[in-house]
Amino acid sequence: MDTARPRRPTLDTVAGAVGVSRATVSNAYNRPDQLSAALRERILVEAARLGYAGPDPVARSLATRHSAAVGFLLGQRLTAAFSDPALSIVLDGLATTVDGHDHSLVLMAGSAGPRAETVARAQADVVVAYSLPEDAPGLAAARARGLPLVVVDQPEAPGVAWVGVDDEGGARLAAEHVRALGHERVAVLTFALHPDGVTGLADRARLRSAAPGVAGRRARGYLEVLGEAPVWECEVSDRALGRAGARELLRLPGRPTAILCASDELAFGALAAARDLGLRVPEDVSVVGFDDIPAAEQAEPPLTTVRQPLTEKGRRAGELALGLLDGERPGRPLRLPVSLIERASTARLT
C-alpha cells in the first residue's frame, strides 16, 4: 500500500493543465497586466480546481530579495497597537494606504524598545518606525540592513523620511487657551521626558535636558507660554499613571486651577483624579488633553483637547513608505498642523 502523501500542486502543475508556460502562470499572479483578462481568468480557475494557492511568498522573497512587506516598528509591546487609541488610529491610516498595493504589514515590538534581532530577521523591504528613542536597537538594525526608513513622530534625523505634527505649536495653543480663560496657576502632566522610567515632579534641569521627542516638544510649548509651572512626569501615557500624577498636582500648595496634559489618556486620568478629590471639572479645575481620540468627545465632561490628524499621519507615513519602495528619496520633514478643540472640560476662572 502506497502511503506517500500527495504532492502539492505547483506552478508547473498548473502550467501543464492549462497548456501554457510556467512564466505565464507566474505572470497571472505577479504581473497580470502581461496577460489578457480571459487567459488570466482561465489560469486562476484551473489553479483553484487543482488546489494551488499561488506563489510561496517566502520562496519569492528569497529569490527576489523582496518580501512586499512594510515593517511597523513600535517602541512598546505589540498589544499597544490594539490598546493605545492614538497608535491604533495611526496604524489604521497606514494599513489603509498600504492595502491594495500588494504589500503586507509586519508588526515588530519589544517591551523596552524593539530588539535588534527582531528587525534583523524580519521579512520587510521598508520600515516605518513609530515614536522611538534615538538609540533604539531596532533602528540601528534597520539602518545596518540598509532598509528604507520612515519615522513617525521621533526621532528626527537627517536623510530620513519623517512625518509628525506641530507638537510645540499645539501645546502653545492649549496654554494660551487656559491663560485667556484667566488661569494663572497651571500645571503640566506629561509622559516620559527621559527614557529612564522616572516618575514625579520634573525640576528645571530635567526639563532643560529633556530627550528630543514628542514629550519634550510639548513641554517646551507649554512652558513658552506659562513660564514657570509644576510639571509631573509619568513613565508612559497611561490613565492610571495620569490619575496618580494629577492627584499629586492637585494637592500642591496653591492648587492649580488648570492642568495641561500631553495626551488624552493622561487627561482622562486627570478627570478621574479631580473626582477622587471632590473637585468639579471645569468649575474647580480645567483640564486640556492632546490628540483628540474618539473617546475625548464622549468623556465626562467632554474633553477640550489639541487635535492632531492621526489618520492623516498614518496615511502620509504609508505614502512615504511606498515612495521609498519605488526608489524615491526622502524629502523634507513633513510636519502636520494641529488645532484646539474647545469642549466642556475648560471654563473661565471665576
Rank of each mutant, 00 (worst) to 15 (best):
D203F: 02
E156P: 05
V119M: 04
L181A: 12
F191H: 08
A161W: 10
G242N: 06
Y130K: 02
R121W: 14
P230H: 09
R143D: 11
R179C: 09
A215T: 06
R172G: 10
G227I: 12
R220V: 01
G216Y: 01
G159V: 03
G197L: 05
L173I: 04
G200C: 00
D196S: 11
E156I: 11
A122H: 14
A141W: 04
A205R: 09
V231P: 00
G138D: 08
E233V: 10
D203E: 09
R145Q: 15
G221M: 00
H177C: 10
R220G: 07
W162P: 08
D153L: 08
A192S: 06
V151R: 09
G216A: 14
E156A: 13
G164A: 10
P133S: 04
L193C: 02
A141D: 02
A180F: 13
V214S: 06
R145I: 13
G146Y: 13
C234N: 11
L147F: 14
P158N: 06
V127T: 05
P155G: 13
V160Y: 12
A192M: 00
R206M: 03
P212L: 10
S237P: 09
V128C: 09
C234E: 03
A136N: 13
R121G: 14
G182Q: 10
G242H: 05
G221Y: 01
A136F: 06
R208Y: 13
G197M: 00
L132S: 01
Y130D: 02
Y130Q: 11
L189A: 04
P148Q: 10
R179I: 07
D203Y: 03
E184F: 12
V188P: 01
E176R: 15
D196P: 07
V127D: 01
E224Q: 13
D238G: 14
E117P: 07
V160W: 00
L139D: 01
G146Q: 15
G159L: 04
E233T: 03
S131P: 02
W162R: 13
V186M: 07
A144D: 15
E233C: 07
S237A: 15
A202M: 07
G221E: 01
R220H: 05
R121E: 07
G200I: 00
Y130V: 13
F191R: 00
E117L: 08
S131T: 03
L189C: 03
G164D: 11
E134M: 04
